[in-house]
Computed example of a mutant assay.
Amino acid sequence: MSKISSVQSILKAKCPQCREGHLFPVSVFSFKKLSAINHNCSVCQANLNPEPDFYYGAMYISYAFSVALVITALTAINILIEEPELWMYLTTVLVGNLILFPAMLRYSKVLYLYALGKLKYRGY
């Protein structure tokens, strides 16, 4: 029986039903198999793909993450640099998106599964 909270299980990308099994076959921050998600939980055998093309809706969450990154980067540049140039904005946003892309893509899937996956925590 898992003793971790739902927030911890989301951050660790664990199964929403048992909070022990991994959602992804590789690390959340890995650039390998970016779109791969386990079909079933290795611990409780919960179906992690409730419907065909279920995770297409996670694109909206990923888009929100990207917009939040852009707004944060632009605000930080404006605060830290007196007269920023266009290349500073573009470079910061591009590099930030490239580095954080795996995490944004995968955490959007995690949040989407937790919100709409109809898998409730069972404390076994």
Rank of each mutant, 00 (worst) to 15 (best):
L69C: 12
I81S: 02
Y63L: 14
M104Y: 11
E85M: 08
V95A: 10
A103P: 00
I77Y: 09
A73S: 14
E85I: 14
L69W: 14
V95N: 02
F101H: 10
F101R: 02
L105V: 08
I79A: 08
I79E: 12
G117H: 08
A103W: 14
A68I: 13
F65T: 03
A73W: 03
L98A: 04
P84F: 07
K118T: 09
K109L: 01
N78Q: 14
L119P: 03
E82M: 00
P102Y: 05
N97V: 10
F101V: 06
M88T: 08
K109D: 01
I77F: 05
T92E: 06
T92N: 05
Y114I: 12
Y112E: 08
L90C: 04
G117M: 06
T75C: 12
I99H: 02
L94N: 00
V67C: 12
L113W: 14
A68V: 13
A103G: 00
L90T: 04
N78S: 14
L119Q: 10
K109I: 01
I81T: 04
T75Q: 09
T91V: 01
L111N: 00
M88I: 10
T72D: 03
L116I: 07
T72A: 15
L94Y: 05
L74G: 03
K118E: 15
T72Y: 12
A73C: 13
W87D: 02
Y63R: 03
V67Y: 02
I77N: 04
V70D: 12
A73K: 06
E83F: 05
I81L: 13
G117F: 07
L90A: 12
G96S: 07
Y114T: 07
L74Q: 05
A68M: 15
L80W: 06
M104A: 11
A115S: 15
L113E: 15
A76H: 00
R106F: 03
E83G: 01
T92A: 12
L74N: 11
L98E: 04
L86D: 10
L116C: 10
I99Y: 09
I81F: 13
E85G: 11
L111K: 00
L113F: 10
M104V: 00
I71P: 03
A73G: 10
Y63T: 04
L74W: 05
R106A: 06
V70S: 15
I71Q: 03
L111Q: 01
L111R: 05
L116P: 01
F101S: 12
T91Y: 03
L111D: 01
A115R: 05
S66L: 14
L69D: 12
T75M: 11
K109W: 02
E85D: 12
L111I: 14
I71G: 04
N97A: 13
L116F: 15
